Simulated scan of single mutants.
Amino acid sequence: MSSKILLIEDEPMLCEMVSDYLASNGYEVVGIDSYDEALSLAYECKFDIFIFDVKIIGGDGFELLSRLRESGVDTPCIFTTSLNDISDLAKGFKSGCDDYIKKPFELAELLLRIDNILKRKFSHLNSDNYIQISNNIKFDIIQKKLIKDNLPVQLAKKESDLLALFLKNRGKILSRDEIYMNLWDYGQIPSELSLRVYIRNLRKIIGEDKIISHPKLGYEYA
């Protein structure tokens, strides 16, 4: 399963070009152009990385990222900017960004920066990106692929997303609202019944004791 990127770019042609290029390299990209829409999506959906233009409709990228960081959103962020002043660069890093790239830029360079940040993000994993679930089961946390007895196991998208979420938060009780926010995209209606089905299916594969139900609280990966 591909990593998900939120791209904010108010130049339509550049937004489309970047989105198409990253999609052709295996990423899922949501491309938008405004501050308000970006804020809503960042709160409602789970992204693996942000790519924010500094100058956006309805605000600026620096202020947007600062606001997200203050609310606890820690998704890595790359700024794209035509600004050259060192004070602007300092402002970007102070707002919480992980990297920046100056316009105009090569798409290949942007891709390298994205790949590098995601590798750092998951640096606590072993080099091949797999988390060992049991002796015969492992999960690729970046590609979101489950392997059992050296064979791939087909999972529904939300099942693989849910397993990745559990593995990243091992030992933490995740409320249903937290799970809904990470699994259901903006505009989709979360379903408790569907969530129960996903958990039941995962338990059948990785073991009944791996996912613990906490009544009225949520679920925990043990």
Rank of each mutant, 00 (worst) to 15 (best):
residue 186 Y to L: 01
residue 154 Q to C: 09
residue 183 L to W: 07
residue 181 M to N: 08
residue 140 D to F: 14
residue 196 R to E: 02
residue 182 N to L: 01
residue 201 N to L: 07
residue 200 R to H: 08
residue 141 I to T: 14
residue 169 N to Y: 03
residue 170 R to M: 13
residue 192 E to V: 12
residue 179 I to A: 10
residue 169 N to L: 00
residue 203 R to I: 04
residue 173 I to A: 03
residue 191 S to E: 06
residue 160 S to M: 05
residue 137 I to A: 05
residue 172 K to I: 15
residue 168 K to W: 05
residue 156 A to P: 01
residue 138 K to S: 15
residue 173 I to H: 05
residue 199 I to C: 00
residue 197 V to F: 13
residue 165 L to T: 05
residue 184 W to K: 07
residue 201 N to D: 15
residue 150 N to W: 03
residue 162 L to V: 11
residue 185 D to L: 15
residue 145 K to T: 15
residue 198 Y to N: 00
residue 200 R to E: 04
residue 173 I to N: 09
residue 145 K to D: 12
residue 143 Q to Y: 02
residue 203 R to E: 08
residue 148 K to D: 03
residue 200 R to F: 01
residue 176 R to K: 15
residue 174 L to R: 11
residue 144 K to H: 10
residue 140 D to S: 14
residue 176 R to V: 14
residue 158 K to M: 09
residue 190 P to L: 12
residue 188 Q to S: 14
residue 158 K to S: 12
residue 143 Q to V: 11
residue 185 D to R: 14
residue 183 L to I: 12
residue 195 L to W: 03
residue 183 L to F: 07
residue 144 K to F: 09
residue 186 Y to G: 07
residue 152 P to T: 02
residue 181 M to W: 05
residue 147 I to C: 02
residue 158 K to G: 10
residue 203 R to P: 00
residue 197 V to W: 04
residue 146 L to Q: 14
residue 171 G to A: 11
residue 193 L to A: 08
residue 202 L to M: 08
residue 150 N to G: 00
residue 176 R to L: 01
residue 170 R to K: 15
residue 196 R to I: 11
residue 172 K to D: 14
residue 193 L to R: 13
residue 151 L to E: 00
residue 152 P to E: 10
residue 179 I to G: 04
residue 182 N to Q: 13
residue 189 I to V: 15
residue 189 I to L: 13
residue 189 I to Q: 10
residue 200 R to P: 02
residue 175 S to D: 09
residue 150 N to C: 09
residue 192 E to Y: 10
residue 158 K to W: 14
residue 171 G to H: 08
residue 154 Q to A: 07
residue 169 N to M: 06
residue 149 D to M: 13
residue 159 E to C: 01
residue 178 E to H: 00
residue 175 S to R: 11
residue 194 S to H: 04
residue 142 I to N: 11
residue 174 L to M: 05
residue 188 Q to E: 15
residue 167 L to Y: 01
residue 146 L to T: 13
residue 171 G to E: 02
residue 198 Y to D: 00
residue 142 I to R: 13
residue 181 M to Y: 07
residue 160 S to R: 02
residue 196 R to F: 09
residue 167 L to S: 07
residue 153 V to S: 01
residue 185 D to C: 11
residue 203 R to Y: 06
residue 187 G to I: 07
residue 183 L to C: 00
residue 171 G to N: 07
residue 194 S to N: 04
residue 153 V to D: 03
residue 147 I to V: 12
residue 172 K to W: 13
residue 181 M to L: 03
residue 164 A to F: 07
residue 150 N to H: 05
residue 201 N to G: 13
residue 176 R to G: 06
residue 200 R to L: 01
residue 141 I to P: 11
residue 196 R to W: 04
residue 152 P to W: 00
residue 199 I to P: 08
residue 152 P to N: 03
residue 166 F to P: 03
